[in-house]
Write a protein that binds this DNA or RNA. Sequence first.
DNA 1: CGATATTTAGACTGATCGGTCTTGAAAGGA
DNA 2: TCCTTTCAAGACCGATCAGTCTAAATATCG
Lengths: 178, 178
Amino acid sequence: MGVFWSRGYHATALPDLLRATKLSRGSLYAAFGDKHSLFLRALDRYIADALTRIDVEFDPGREPVDGLRAYLAGYVDRTSGANGRRGCLLVATAMELAGQDAEVGRRVASFFEAMEARVADALSRAKAAGKLADGVEPSSVARILVCFVEGLRVVGKTAPTRNTSRATADALLGRFLK
Amino acid sequence: MGVFWSRGYHATALPDLLRATKLSRGSLYAAFGDKHSLFLRALDRYIADALTRIDVEFDPGREPVDGLRAYLAGYVDRTSGANGRRGCLLVATAMELAGQDAEVGRRVASFFEAMEARVADALSRAKAAGKLADGVEPSSVARILVCFVEGLRVVGKTAPTRNTSRATADALLGRFLK
DNA sequence: CGATATTTAGACTGATCGGTCTTGAAAGGA
DNA sequence: TCCTTTCAAGACCGATCAGTCTAAATATCG
């Protein structure tokens, strides 16, 4: 998974995958079929990891506002400095393949939907608890936040400092909280 | 330029470039050197086009808030429906190459800086004119907006409807205006 | 028209791609 | 110990990659 991660699909060659999996050529093909299938497996795992992480951050037993803070803090962490340079398998894949490869496109779209739904849910709970600023619409703000964090992944490629990114994220979230 | 646009650098082969430029193989190499140089030329042109467009949107003779609205509306237009599917050369390049190719990395970073500076300038003028909500910091909000529009390009790959994207952008900008 | 310069189409090169297949060494069981 | 099974190493395949070069066609000009 980590091999596709920073280099992308096309730029990852079989020898890279063999080195990463420590498998022989034959075993790799026996186990996964072909490069495309292996890539989809990696992408699915990446998505599953991301969603379970989000579910932890937005744990229902927790203050939803704290969940939102943790969610943004996690993205700040993953998109600043060297972490940002590493990039994001999902965003790289979205840009590289989502338009041409239907199987990939579906996965990318459903990931964004799933993430947006979780953020919207947390926002709804925060709103019910009276923590949101006046006029904040959870579904709309959820879309804003999803766009924002994916944008962080893009500009994160230029390795901004953690402090800058955190301040930016705080400023954004602050606009929606009471 | 349009060939690299949706497919990216690695996935664009020489025959694609020949078809797109209507040049013979020899002429193309005589004119541009190699694939990488041609790509940098395309990227530079894409960046220059984007910046001049932004300069038009943020024309000093115009209301800065109108400039911000036009800026966001342009991104909404380019990231919804089929336009969104086409993608963005700059974001695709950032994810595919910025981490590995220093020449590309520099261009991507300087583009984000340039765009952020222009947005920050428009926000400053809007603030001076008393159009911004209380406590809005132009430099910080500029970073927010840049992240947001680049995030739009990413989720735009899933071809959201124009109405949804516009509502999202309006909701965001509305939080910063008086 | 004829001589010269320019550009074209595409053959060609070596490297590398994804994917298959063979070979030989290691491991396990009786 | 010997037979079987398993798996790793890498040879091999056709296709295609970026890039070079040649030969024919076309344009230019006197």
